[in-house]
Simulated assay, not measured.
Amino acid sequence: MKRKEVRNIRNRALNKEDKGGEKMQLKRAKILLSVVIVAGLLFTSALALAQTRIRVLMLTSPAMTALRDMVPEFEKKYPDIKVVWEDTAYADIHTKEMNDFIAHTGRYDVIQMDNPWLPEYAGGGFIENLEPWIKKAGLRLWKDNVRKWPPGVEMYPTIYLEDEIVPVLNFYGNWKGNLYAIPNMPGVQLLYYRKDLFEDPQEKAKFMAEYGYELQVPKTWKQLYDVAEFFTRPPNLYGLTWSAGKGNMAVQNYYNIAWSWGADCLAFGQGFPDPDDPIHNMPICNSPIGVKALEFFCSLKPFMPPGVAAYEWAEITSDFIQGKAAMMFQWSDFVRDVEDPAKSKVAGKVGYALMPGNPDAPVNNVPGII
């Protein structure tokens, strides 16, 4: 065999060996990468298993948005806890919670509820008595069996937390003498109004000519009616936007009117505090003053945008920040959205006042805690 042929055979053999080595190195690299990926997945899984996951269900609202923004800070302070956040509209939150309770799915660990649901949730055994957990956390909780709660009924002990008596704690968390909930979203309804409209010289002159008195922020329900009627110019502007959806939406707003006129919906609020009295919990919304308040409430509908009968807080806020209403009755925490220039066309143009009342009654505010 010639020397050249021998050299060619040797070179081909070396090339084959090199390619085989490359393939082997590539195979080793793939195996190593797989090991790294698997190790990473195992580490991530182990970390996830080591964390306690707390799933919460909250109401979609500016106040809860602020709370959600604090979750990263909480998780940084407690790295072994992972918060899984979910929020939903008011119309859906009760249904989601009850479905979870009845089906025993245990989907949620922490929930937000409206205060009228406390008897249903606590009485049904769906939520836990918080007192053992409060004591475990080292907080001082004690009860006064002399000073009973609620006032006028005095059936259950008053609850103190950390040497303080907090009335809202008992109003909204005390169920038959035990603490089942901590109030976390306080608020008061306010009258939001467009300063740019109320202070416009032409609008003021026109109102004076039509109604015979100066345009001003309404202090009485009669003034509110006049101002709402005056600014109603459909389809671009309405005098008032106000949630009138079924259930709590309509009830809370009816109460604004009814209470300021001295009406109530339950007899114990009208001087029948004895729980053994058959009339104690009897509905009395159909009293003459209650009917009058309801009729007035309904009379405002022509001055509101179409669809208010299904409105919740988000819809009325949307109308107002888009400049579609001169006034809005809304909870105080929605100021955040109203004054956000990125969301609101009326940011910086809004004034805030107390709810209207009757000349013979104090100006009415309806506080609320969820």
Rank of each mutant, 00 (worst) to 15 (best):
D277K: 02
N248A: 12
P288L: 13
D277I: 04
D92K: 12
D144I: 06
Y121Q: 12
S45T: 12
V217R: 00
N358V: 06
L266E: 12
A228T: 03
F74K: 11
T241R: 03
G123Q: 13
A205Q: 04
M155C: 05
V84H: 15
K204D: 05
G21C: 10
K16L: 08
S287N: 00
K148P: 02
K19I: 05
L179H: 08
S318W: 10
L47C: 05
L294C: 06
P62N: 04
K324C: 00
K77S: 13
F171N: 14
L190E: 14
Y352G: 05
R233L: 11
K195A: 14
G212S: 02
M155D: 06
P116C: 11
R12D: 04
P186Q: 03
W133K: 11
A48L: 11
D340M: 13
M282W: 06
M64A: 10
L179Y: 11
E5P: 02
A50G: 07
R7H: 04
V168S: 11
Y160P: 00
D18Y: 13
A29T: 02
Q189L: 14
T317K: 08
Y160M: 01
K76W: 11
C298T: 14
I127K: 00
D87M: 09
D333F: 03
F268P: 13
N115R: 14
F329D: 01
I182R: 03
P201V: 01
S34Q: 13
N11R: 15
F207A: 00
K16C: 09
T60M: 01
N11F: 15
K23G: 05
D360A: 09
Y90R: 06
Q322P: 04
L33M: 11
P356G: 08
K301Q: 13
P62E: 01
G21W: 11
G21Q: 14
M185R: 12
L14S: 10
L215C: 05
N365E: 12
D264Y: 10
M58E: 04
N178V: 08
M208H: 09
N236S: 12
V6Q: 10
L57P: 04
E17M: 09
F329K: 08
C265E: 13
P306Q: 05
D333P: 01
N286G: 01
G138V: 02
N11V: 15
D333A: 03
A29Q: 02
V35N: 05
G21H: 13
M113I: 15
G262A: 11
N15C: 13
S287W: 01
I134R: 00
W221P: 02
F334K: 08
I93C: 02
L224D: 00
Q189D: 14
D200E: 05
